[in-house]
C-alpha cells in the first residue's frame, strides 16, 4: 500500500503536555554521552543563565515520539513501520529546553515523495511552551522501503 498523499492536508491534534523533568534530562544526557555540567548540575545551568538543567539538542525526539505514534495510528496512512528507516533529522530552536518546561507538540506532514520505489515522508512537530511560545521544531524524514521485487 503506498503512503496516502492526503496526509499533508490533515490537521493533527496537539499532544498532551510533556513536562520536562530534571532526572529525565540527566538520564537522556547520560545516554548520549553528554558530559557538560549544564545538562546535569542545576547550579552550573543557573550560572550559565538557565533556569534549570538544559536538555541536550536531540532531546525533543523523546517528545516527538508521541506525534510519530499519531502518524502511524492513522488507519489510512499506508505506513508499514517495519519498513521505515530514519532518513534525516533536524531540530530548529527558538530557545533551549530546560527542566520544568511543559511542551506541547503539533504534527504536520509537510511532504510525501516517491523515489525509486521508496516513499519519503517529511513531517514537522512544532513544540510550544505553556505560554504558547515556540521552543523547537523537530523535522524528520522517514523513508518507507518499497516491496522487494
Amino acid at each position: 500500500m503506498p503512503v496516502n498523499p492526503e496526509l499533508t492536508e490533515r490537521a493533527f491534534a496537539p499532544t498532551a503536555p510533556y513536562l520536562v523533568g530534571r532526572e529525565k534530562v540527566r538520564e537522556f544526557a547520560r545516554a548520549v554521552f553528554a558530559t557538560a555540567p549544564l545538562h546535569h548540575d542545576p547550579e552550573a545551568a543557573r550560572a550559565a543563565g538557565f533556569a534549570d538543567v538544559v536538555a541536550p539538542p536531540t532531546f525533543p525526539i523523546v517528545i516527538a515520539e508521541a506525534t510519530l505514534q499519531q502518524l502511524l495510528a492513522e488507519p489510512d496512512a499506508g505506513i508499514d513501520f517495519s519498513r521505515v528507516v530514519h532518513g534525516d533529522q533536524r531540530f530548529t530552536y527558538t530557545r533551549p529546553i530546560v527542566a520544568g518546561d511543559e511542551l506541547t507538540a503539533t504534527l504536520r506532514v509537510t511532504s510525501i515523495k516517491s523515489l525509486g520505489g521508496n516513499s519519503m515522508v517529511t513531517s514537522e512537530s512544532a513544540m510550544t511552551d505553556v505560554e504558547g511560545e515556540h521552543v523547537v521544531t523537530s523535522i524528520s524524514t522517514l523513508v518507507i522501503r518499497g516491496d522487494e521485487s
Binding site: V54, P57, T58, V85, H86, G87, D88, Q89, R90, F91, T92, Y93, P96, I139
Partner: peptide, 10 residues
C-alpha cells in the same frame, strides 16, 4: 553559546 539548529542525514 548554545545549539540553535542541528541537522543530519543518516
Amino acid at each position: 553559546g548554545w545549539v540553535s539548529d542541528y541537522q543530519v542525514r543518516f
